[in-house]
Amino acid sequence: MTFHEKSAWAMGILLILIGGWYVNTVWDISREMEMTAPPLLALAAVATVALIAGAVVSHIVIALVDPEAAEGDQDERDKQVLRRSGNIAGYFLGFGCFAGLWNYFWLQDGNMLFHIIVVSLIVSQIAEYALTIIFYRRGA
């Protein structure tokens, strides 16, 4: 398994857990308030710090397991896989932004727009990690 595939596994799992927790918390707060929760800076900050800390720790572990792979640059296959997965993941983000804008156009709910954009970012990033793994295993 390449360094980038290991990294995609670690970051994908981290993002599913932390992103899931973030979305679930916003959902619960919205239900309690009986309206779309406003953007919660403290919640976003906790999620961001947890994600960065998790990324640092997981990459240190990956580098310790295979230091040689961690030191190497991307080779031509890495570049091809990462470019293709990033390209397709961009469509997820674009679709989410488009859906958010249409939602705002019809409902005029800025809070919902914020959450849709955040969820789109999370989903597109998870898609990028998933596609990276698929392309490494099946060929890009």
Binding site: T2, G72, D75, E76, R77, D78, Y136, R138, G139, A140
Partner: peptide, 16 residues
């Protein structure tokens, strides 16, 4: 050839 071992494996297996 300046690639990773995983890339050589993928070439040999016809995946790349």
């Amino acid at each position: 050839i300046g690639v990773t071992r995983q890339t050589v494996i993928a070439i040999e297996q016809g995946r790349y």
